[in-house]
Design a protein around this nucleic acid. Sequence first.
DNA 1: CGCCGCGTTGAAGAAAATCAAAGCACGTGG
DNA 2: CCACGTGCTTTGATTTTCTTCAACGCGGCG
Lengths: 247, 247
Amino acid sequence: MSEYSCLVDRLSNIGDLTDGDIELLKSLEKDQRSYQAGVTVREQGQIGRDLYVVSEGWAYSAVDMENGNRQILNIHMPGDMIGIGDLAFEHSMSSVITVTDAVLCPFPRSRLSDIFERSLRLATILFIVDTRQHALLVDRVIAIGQREAFQRISHLLLELCQRTLECTHNNIQDLVIPLTQQQIGEMLGLTSIHVNRTFKRLQDEQLVMVSRGKISVPDMGRLAEVADVQTAFAEIDLKWLKQAAED
Amino acid sequence: MSEYSCLVDRLSNIGDLTDGDIELLKSLEKDQRSYQAGVTVREQGQIGRDLYVVSEGWAYSAVDMENGNRQILNIHMPGDMIGIGDLAFEHSMSSVITVTDAVLCPFPRSRLSDIFERSLRLATILFIVDTRQHALLVDRVIAIGQREAFQRISHLLLELCQRTLECTHNNIQDLVIPLTQQQIGEMLGLTSIHVNRTFKRLQDEQLVMVSRGKISVPDMGRLAEVADVQTAFAEIDLKWLKQAAED
DNA sequence: CGCCGCGTTGAAGAAAATCAAAGCACGTGG
DNA sequence: CCACGTGCTTTGATTTTCTTCAACGCGGCG
């Protein structure tokens, strides 16, 4: 079993994994399923559902409202785990929908209990991953609540670039984001029209390139100046982890 | 040790606690400290800080931005635990400030590791509490991103009433909320002025009473109709809990 | 070809912010 | 007891941001 696993790769950046941990994690990706872009993987309100590991492609979680609007809560990239957040609820709060063609690996909730029992270290690492999801959500609240469109979008693009880099280990400064302007609006509480107009401003200032529907960011540094990030994607406290994860 | 503990009370609603669990929890409230209203308990960016249990009064977590704005992330009520969300980060992301006169009980992070080791059941319950915090934040994103002021405020008032009832076991329909309109604005991404105007509409429709700075909600049911809640403060999946918390 | 999804553009209107000022309860000190 | 300050609420006038509605362009694809 020496195939590459994005999940293992990501989690080993947080803390060292034993061979047993690695086997446990790889077992989560056994059931690989392919989905086309734009497909609903899991419906909001569903009961007794699985979790997923993202192997390839992007997906997102979203809540649909009765007025037809939709709030996208989170983008899922390779190595992310989908569903930890509403694990304790009987009904899923959100739908999961693919952005691009994607490979997702469903696994039952019970598998997670297994992991918690077998490896306290792994449980701690997953807790930290969850904490990070939480931090991203906090950043989103701040962006939507306190900033206007120009900065919201800059901020989001930075987050997505940052996370893409973490997934791919690429250093290319020319990152492509496969979201539509509609979807970006649904993440930030903006109309696609307003997103479009704001993008034009970003293009005028050479901060973002848009061609044939593909968004790319040529210079993250310059974008960061404009976006006045401050919750600066916080670093993990490894000391506490080491201390807590003594098996 | 038979004094009342709001924390024990709240957590025992989620799952049964052993006597040992109860002792562990009560030990968290040993160090009781009194604070006046409006006092900063913990500063944003602080390092190596404690967590807190709220014994009496209300507090909130907030992020201050360099433009002087402030985003309130969460209201903490008696029995709540402050700081689980950014446990894994070295620097605290948010400040903690009292709303009313309050009694908070600080305890070191290491105490939480102790608990995780000694009681898997308690760890699971705390995980569920954290999940619920997460759900509240999701609701906030949806409110801020998708609804306009009138519904945002209705929704927030409902959440606060609901949580107050859970803390106090009162059934009185005439709940008082000790927040200023400024603070409500800071929770919802609105100006205090706009909050005020919206409150007037709510008063005109007899949904909310404001007198001498105290907000009260005479009829939650009627408010709920207006607020079109849908993420209906989701219920906890007890089956999963039972299964996971077999010691 | 014609349709469909997405991006682009304009004009009009609504929601919320900003600026400015006044009122009101409450505490404090003269 | 009254004058005064302070913090919160209330109100009006004005401006900004964002939405809504409507239309058109444009590339891909059956």
